[in-house]
């Protein structure tokens, strides 16, 4: 069990599930409406009868009106595909607080995914194959973050077509938000981007002289953290966050910024407000 994660709180938040997009999706046969023709109860269209069609689907009322045999078509029912993209770089565990928040967030998303009979996979890097996820507690094996770069920075992530995608990272690395978001959203049914940072990372305070050491080995810097430096940093961080938000809007994705320190229940509510989760 990952130390610091409040699994009881996570279990309590299991009443939430991911919001399924209204746009048709792809997936195995299940209980969600898909993009193709199937055997659900939702009427989709008519077409002329051809020999071999199931007589049970003949629209006899229409035949009575027009004396033409036609077949009623219904939407297929599928189990949605969910790709949970998580950032396993060292920055996600830079502090114990952030590590706990990260673990609880991923566990919450795993719980919300597995509770809706979805085909859920955990995507951690382009090099590793996606990991099928059946139970929420299976994610704890992948919360040990020791990479020097995150999955968001990599090309060629193994994401499935028409899948629901949820990406979790702090996005604290030099990047072009349009490129990253576009890459994550390409050929997907939906995309939710969750940026998780600590309060110090988003809104640092004046601390005086510090030797800042990048936990991912990208150098170190002696700097005096005064009011001016803090203001400049906050401005740059806000530009980064707004860039992600704008890029998400352009692609129809959902973006939400979380501060570490909230309980799983509070996090679930924030995600629900953002339209990522919904009550089961």
């Amino acid at each position: 069990m990952q130390p610091g994660i409040d699994w009881a709180a996570v279990q309590a938040a299991a009443a939430w599930r991911l919001v399924v997009p209204r746009t048709p999706m792809r997936g195995r046969v299940g209980e969600r409406l898909g993009a193709g023709t199937g055997s659900s109860l939702e009427f989709q269209d008519h077409r002329p009868y051809v020999p071999g069609d199931d007589l049970r689907h003949v629209d006899w009322k229409a035949f009575a009106r027009s004396e033409v045999l036609s077949i009623r078509l219904y939407r297929e029912e599928i189990a949605p595909r969910i790709d949970l993209v998580i950032d396993r770089s060292r920055s996600m565990v830079a502090t114990e607080l952030k590590q706990r928040a990260y673990g609880e967030l991923v566990a919450l998303l795993a719980s919300a995914s597995t509770s809706m009979s979805a085909d859920t996979r955990l995507v951690t890097s382009a090099a590793a194959p996606p990991i099928p996820l059946h139970r929420p507690d299976e994610v704890q094996r992948f919360l040990d973050c020791d990479a020097t770069s995150g999955a968001m920075e990599e090309l060629g992530l193994q994401l499935r077509r028409q899948s629901m995608r949820v990406a979790v990272s702090d996005f604290l690395f030099p990047h072009d938000p349009d490129t990253i978001v576009g890459r994550l959203a390409r050929d997907g049914a939906s995309l939710a981007i969750i940026q998780l940072t600590t309060r110090d990372e988003a809104e640092p305070d004046v601390e005086g002289g510090r030797r800042l050491v990048d936990v991912e080995g990208r150098g170190e810097l002696d700097v005096t953290i005064d009011a001016r430096t803090v203001a400049e940093y906050r401005a740059r961080f806000n530009r980064l966050r707004q860039g992600l938000s704008r890029a998400a809007r352009r692609t129809g994705a959902t973006f939400v910024h979380l501060m570490a320190g909230a309980t799983p229940r509070q996090v679930a509510r924030v995600l629900a407000d953002a339209g990522i989760l919904e009550p089961r």
Partner: peptide, 18 residues
């Protein structure tokens, strides 16, 4: 200076070096 591990050093690098 006291050492402080951080993520995203690039956001600080525009600050004035000491």
């Amino acid at each position: 200076f006291p050492v402080r591990p951080i993520a995203g050093l690039f956001l600080w690098q525009a600050a004035h070096d000491v």
